[in-house]
Design a binder for these strands. Sequence first.
DNA 1: GCTTGTAGGGTTGTCTGATAACCTTATATG
DNA 2: CATATAAGGTTATCAGACAACCCTACAAGC
Lengths: 237, 237
Amino acid sequence: MADFNQIRRSEHLPARIAAQIGKEISEGRIAPGEKLPTEHLLSKTFGVSRSVVREAIAQMRNEGLVETRQGVGAFATDTQHRHSIRIEQDNLADRGSFRSLFQLRLPLEIEAAGLAAVHHTADDLAKLDETLGRMSGADKWTDEGIVADLAFHRQVAAATQNEYFLMFLGFVAERIHLAINAARETAVLEEIVEITIAEHVAIRDAIATGDPVKARDAMRRHLIGAADRVDLKVDVF
Amino acid sequence: MADFNQIRRSEHLPARIAAQIGKEISEGRIAPGEKLPTEHLLSKTFGVSRSVVREAIAQMRNEGLVETRQGVGAFATDTQHRHSIRIEQDNLADRGSFRSLFQLRLPLEIEAAGLAAVHHTADDLAKLDETLGRMSGADKWTDEGIVADLAFHRQVAAATQNEYFLMFLGFVAERIHLAINAARETAVLEEIVEITIAEHVAIRDAIATGDPVKARDAMRRHLIGAADRVDLKVDVF
DNA sequence: GCTTGTAGGGTTGTCTGATAACCTTATATG
DNA sequence: CATATAAGGTTATCAGACAACCCTACAAGC
């Protein structure tokens, strides 16, 4: 079978325009507080209709990049005041970016394990065991196994009883998994599923004991191992 | 004086509709993978034009809540696959939520301090000193002082040379500062500016030595102190 | 029977033009 | 000098149309 790639229809006109205007802002060509060109003018310069420009501006407004005032115009806001966090998946194809995100994940996961050890409920432990079962059940490192792996880490985050740990860790872990998925060498991965399961069990047991230090150590070891398996060097103190 | 309420043109029609549809999804009335009504139908049921419905759907698409396929329709996606992170500022008025977010901030800031100690450049140190100067310069805990405080923490994050630490910490710290601002007791805050400055200096010096353990300790002490000053109990291991 | 071509209807994407709501500024008015 | 009014520009919303695209069903050919 041929591989049939790049059919991508250069998706979504408004998104591309939003990205372009956003670049103008983040690279300082439009200073914070400064007024953007009018929608009418933008539609002419980009050669698209006003609807598209409006949708692009709406997107930036949702992200907090610009503010609009009816009858006045659209104004660039500071990058520092973003209302949301977003990561373009393409960026993670770059190994440096990927490493940076993994480095960010480290303290979050470790802290989450510690908090989970202290705050978990019986129900949390049951759900953890359930995801472990699903992972062992998948006899190969198939998609199902990867999904179960993600579910395990999500469940640890949920066990902290802290909504934001779940929100942030779920977000970061998902991005990392997608990036690994995009570039994976299945051959390598099949060998290491056993190790991963063993480490997951160790984390689960540590959480069950209620000792945050042990839980953190188990999670730290797991992540360092995981980083090692994809040839990633991370800073650990 | 009258009470001047509902003048708010209940701002932004598309946002309200997006919220309403979003609620339908998050409360399960529209299952993941299920198709939304057509734009034409939605515009009729809500009594607005299709442009507004389109903008609402575009917003949800940006957040990863729905996916659209031309010629087919819009489909609800799982909450777990969000493309962006967003926190409603109102949620942080709740003390529990505020505490949760602060708890999330802890490991990020501490890790950032450690990484900054290892990876900072001379330029980073200079910028750190500059923000420290601005904070001392403001003789009261005015807005300027708060801005400088935020800038200091942002600069530490920047010194990690890790774009994602800057992105996430900037986001979280900003949300926390806004929440504190919304509910602050100025009287209390004026007394503690001196302490904060001293702690900032300690962090800066620790980073300058290049010792990650010292930098982490300094940041940990600072945050625990800060939490204490707003009567917040956090978990520390 | 199976594949391929074609037509049709439905949906989202984009365009165009118009009207309403709103803000700013300048000018007139007392 | 303060207020009212008018004018012009900008965003918000509306309405209708066409283009691009997907899916299904049915016909045609092998």
